[in-house]
C-alpha cells in the first residue's frame, strides 16, 4: 500500500510537470512601436504634436496600460537599444521639462494604435522658459498578465524662436 501511494504521487508529479504551460518568452511581453514622431525628430514647445503608437500583445491576455514620460537627456545617457541621434553638447539642466501620463488601453484588444495630441508648454509655473535640447520619451506598456515592456524615443525639443 505504501509503495503504491508513492508511485501514485510520483505519477501525479510528472502529470503536473507536463500540464504546466511553458510560455514562449518573447510572446509573453507586449510590444511597442512608435509610428510618430520618429527618432531624432525635432518638435517644438507650444506646438500640438500628434503621437501615434502601436501596441501589440501576442500573449492572448489583452493590452493593459500605457505610461509615457518625458525627461531631459542633457547628460547624454542611454536606456538600451534605442536609436540615438546627434546630440547638443552636455549641459546642466536649469528648468528642464518633465512630465508623465498614464492611459488605459482597451483590454479586449491584442493590437491597438494609440493616438493623442500633446502640447508641451514653453514655460513652467514660475514663468521661466523650459530648457531646450535633447529629451527622451519613455513609453511603457503592460498586458493583462502583468508583463511590461518599454521603449525609448530620442527627440530634440526646441523653442519656436530658437
Amino acid at each position: 500500500m505504501k509503495k503504491s501511494s508513492i508511485i501514485l504521487l510520483t505519477i501525479l508529479m510528472f502529470f503536473l510537470h507536463a500540464c504546466v504551460k511553458e510560455s514562449d518568452e518573447k510572446e509573453a511581453f507586449p510590444e511597442v512601436t512608435i509610428l510618430s514622431p520618429l527618432p531624432c525628430d525635432t518638435i517644438y514647445f507650444s506646438e500640438a504634436v500628434t503621437y501615434k503608437i502601436k501596441f501589440t500583445d501576442k500573449s492572448g491576455s489583452g493590452l493593459g496600460n500605457l505610461a509615457m514620460d518625458i525627461h531631459n537627456n542633457f547628460n547624454q545617457h542611454s536606456h538600451g537599444s534605442h536609436q540615438t541621434c546627434d546630440m547638443d553638447p552636455v549641459k546642466e539642466p536649469v528648468t528642464p521639462y518633465e512630465n508623465a501620463w498614464v492611459f488605459n488601453l482597451p483590454s479586449d484588444k491584442s493590437e491597438y494604435i494609440f493616438e493623442t495630441v500633446i502640447e508641451i508648454p514653453a514655460k513652467n509655473n514660475d514663468n521661466n522658459s523650459h530648457d531646450y535640447g535633447d529629451y527622451h520619451y519613455h513609453i511603457y506598456v503592460t498586458n493583462n498578465d502583468g508583463y511590461q515592456s518599454f521603449t525609448t524615443l530620442d527627440i530634440k525639443l526646441l523653442h519656436k524662436e530658437d
Binding site: L63, G64, N65, L66, A67, V102, Y140, T142, G146, Q148
Partner: peptide
C-alpha cells in the same frame, strides 16, 4: 505579490493576490 496591468507614474502596480498552489 502579482504584477497587474496598471501603471502609475510611480511605477507598475503590484497587488497581493491569492491562488491555490502546490510546492513539493
Amino acid at each position: 505579490l502579482n504584477p497587474t496591468p496598471y501603471l502609475r507614474s510611480e511605477g507598475q502596480v503590484y497587488e497581493y493576490q491569492q491562488t491555490t498552489a502546490l510546492l513539493y
